[in-house]
Amino acid sequence: MTAVRTPPPPVPRPGHEADRLAAVRRSGVRDSRPDAALDGLVQLAAKLCGTASAEINLVDETDLWFCAARGLGRHGETVPRDLTFCTWTILDPDRPTLVPSAAEDPRFAQNPFVLDGTIGSYAGFPLLSDGQPIGSMCVHDPQPNRLSLDQLEDLRVLATAAQEHLALRRDVAELNELSRTDALTGTANRRAIDDTLARELAQAARRGGHLSVLMADLDRFKAYNDTHGHLAGDLLLQSIARRWRSHLRAGDLLGRWGGEEFCVLLPDCPAQEALVVAERLRADMPEEQTCSIGVASGTAAGAEPGDFIGRADRALYEAKAAGRDRVVPAS
């Protein structure tokens, strides 16, 4: 007679799951690149705790994502969340989850990783971001094993180091983003435009693809400022940025070139499509204001970033000279 395997008990969700998932997204950990510092921490954890495996991971909505791993798993791999021990670790952000004998623990006795002999024991500390448990640092071994107090303290210290490293990495990323963002409109600034244009041009050259650049200038903006005040002018620029974003694809870039001038980068976008986008932007102006737009398109082979900017800028001035409120393609 075949034995009926009892399914593992359902894993409860934290009462603060919505807030926790928001913290997971803000952390920027998911899909990040391999990190040598985290790799070093998991190697040290396995050595100090005498276990076959050690991991730093993120517990997302449906799966566990390996940030760093030694033994079982590799960076970037995922495991269904409800099959993992770490999804229990995030239930209590204030203490570790200790499982000296997984086969004797009712939470895990029927877990596939226990039944196949992969995990016999586990110890994990939650990793916090914005006060929420976003993942864990853990060690586990095929054999039952109870960590000593010294080993638990070592693992706690390493988990704290991992948590602080992830927080520092997020702070650096946010500062870098701020350095590439226009403070008034929230669009890309000149530095980000230059960097992105050079990168997209190189990628288009490798693929033999097209690239389009739009230079847009608000018509008679000085008169608008003189009439309504500089605060109203700032609000107008912010409104334009919000409106124009809705017309762009995820891979496009909207940036403030300077003053009342915007630049739009359209990767993989040939001339005719770029003109359609430009007309949509021109038509979506708040408060009955108008703008003029120059469009430069072409293949990237042999081109320099300044070539596209220069052609689009000349077309913009042609639009101004022709009476404003129009789109002009570069020759």
Rank of each mutant, 00 (worst) to 15 (best):
P34F: 11
P34Y: 08
D35N: 13
A36P: 00
A36E: 15
L38R: 10
D39R: 08
D39K: 04
D39W: 05
D39E: 15
G40C: 08
G40M: 07
V42Q: 01
V42D: 03
Q43K: 12
Q43N: 12
Q43P: 00
Q43S: 11
Q43G: 15
L44R: 13
L44V: 10
L44C: 07
A45H: 11
L48D: 02
L48A: 13
C49M: 07
C49R: 04
C49G: 04
G50Y: 13
G50F: 09
G50W: 07
T51C: 13
A52M: 11
S53Y: 06
E55G: 00
E55S: 12
E55F: 02
E55P: 00
N57Y: 09
N57L: 15
L58W: 03
L58Q: 14
D60T: 14
E61Y: 01
T62P: 00
L64Q: 15
L64R: 11
L64F: 04
F66S: 01
F66Q: 00
A68P: 08
G71Y: 05
L72C: 05
R74C: 05
R74P: 00
R74W: 03
H75K: 09
G76A: 12
E77S: 14
T78P: 00
V79N: 02
V79P: 03
P80F: 07
P80G: 03
D82N: 13
L83A: 08
T84N: 07
F85L: 05
F85K: 02
C86W: 11
T87R: 11
T87V: 12
T87G: 01
W88A: 03
W88D: 03
I90M: 03
L91R: 06
D92Y: 10
D92W: 08
D92H: 12
P93G: 09
P93D: 08
D94Q: 14
T97Q: 02
L98Q: 10
L98Y: 02
V99I: 14
V99M: 06
P100C: 07
P100H: 11
S101V: 09
S101C: 14
A102F: 09
A103R: 15
P106W: 07
R107A: 09
F108A: 03
F108K: 05
A109I: 07
A109W: 03
Q110V: 00
Q110A: 15
N111T: 11
F113D: 02
F113I: 01
L115R: 15
G117K: 10
T118Y: 02
I119V: 15
G120Y: 06
S121D: 07
S121R: 07
G124V: 12
F125L: 07
L127A: 06
S129T: 00
D130H: 15
G131L: 06
Q132W: 01
Q132A: 13
Q132V: 02
P133M: 08
P133C: 08
P133E: 02
P133I: 06
I134A: 03
S136Y: 02
S136W: 05
M137K: 04
C138Y: 07
V139T: 12
D141Y: 05
P142T: 13
Q143N: 10
N145G: 01
R146S: 14
L147S: 05
L147Y: 10
D150C: 00
Q151W: 13
Q151L: 10
L152M: 15
E153A: 14
E153K: 14
E153N: 13
D154Y: 15
D154V: 02
D154M: 09
L155R: 09
